[in-house]
């Protein structure tokens, strides 16, 4: 029968081994040769876009890369789906955007901020998501 010291060794040993593997896999994932995000394309505009995204807690309603609030549409590939003009109109709308009744916060963004958010969304749209990009709804190319 298992003794208490064996149980403790199982806990400590298992934790240390899996922790080391976890750290190893993390380092492996972020090696440049394994980059799936086009990291080199992150410029000042994309960074500014991310800052605006976070400052307004867009993730509190929308999802991006499948993460967020599930209250408003997924924005991965939104530029490909809707086009820049549509996204610009939403961000600069003087009244709360509310297609089909669900309201968005009114942001009335200026041109500079709008361009930054679009640059950020474009960068997101080019990430290799291991197949999720083909499933995430509703991609025009899958409708054909």
């Amino acid at each position: 029968m298992l003794s208490k010291s064996q149980a403790r060794a199982f806990f400590l040993g298992g934790t240390v081994v899996t922790f080391l593997i976890f750290i190893g896999l993390t380092i492996y994932s972020f090696q440049p040769k394994n980059d799936q995000t086009n990291h080199h394309q992150i410029d000042a505009n994309v960074i500014r876009g991310k800052q605006i995204w976070e400052a307004n807690n867009c993730m509190g309603c929308h999802t991006i890369l499948g993460e967020g609030g599930y209250y408003a549409p997924e924005l991965t590939k939104v530029i490909e789906r809707r086009g820049e003009g549509y996204v610009k109109a939403v961000l600069q709308s003087p009244i709360p955007w509310g297609p089909r009744g669900r309201k968005m916060v009114k942001y009335e963004m200026n041109d500079e901020d709008t361009e930054a958010v679009i640059a950020y969304l474009k960068w997101i749209g080019n990430i290799d998501l291991n197949g999720f990009e083909r499933v995430v709804s509703p991609l025009a190319k899958d409708k054909e």
Partner: peptide
């Protein structure tokens, strides 16, 4: 001890289920 051992054994590397579709390997 056995239960918390199982927790870390599965939970640490189980973090990977959040990494499937966010743009990593």
């Amino acid at each position: 001890y056995v239960i918390v051992g199982l927790t870390f054994l599965s939970g640490l590397l189980g973090t990977g289920h959040h990494y499937y579709y966010i743009g990593v390997n």
